[in-house]
């Protein structure tokens, strides 16, 4: 994975984790407006990064495939680091 892709992926992972933590909190505190506003802001930011990533580099879920070939199955899968050979 090239460094530009790795960097944007890391950015997406970070904002996804922020959202996930907020979701867990909101599950137990559904009436907390401040948490809800925080969630909405993070979700809007996430959408932008997500769209940029899938357009530029390929799918996060299978339904994201925008390319003219089935890029869903392309290497690397998440457990494969840079030492893996692409084939």
């Amino acid at each position: 994975m090239k460094s530009g892709q790795a960097k944007l992926l890391r950015k997406l992972m970070d904002v996804d984790f922020v959202i996930h933590e907020t979701v867990l909190y909101l599950d137990g505190h559904p009436g907390n407006q401040r948490a809800l506003e925080f969630y909405k802001k993070a979700a809007a930011e996430q959408k932008e990064i997500y769209n940029q990533y899938v357009t530029q580099y390929g799918p996060i879920v299978a339904e994201d495939v925008r390319q003219n070939s089935w890029t869903w199955i392309d290497f690397p899968w998440p457990w494969q680091n840079d030492k893996e050979v692409d084939n």
């Binding site: 199955i73 392309d74 899968w77 457990w79 084939n87």
Partner: peptide, 16 residues
């Protein structure tokens, strides 16, 4: 099983 499966088609099938 999917982690050590070497072929991307089969990794996709196992995952999905």
């Amino acid at each position: 099983q999917r982690y050590t499966m070497p072929y991307k088609e089969v990794i996709g099938i196992l995952t999905d």
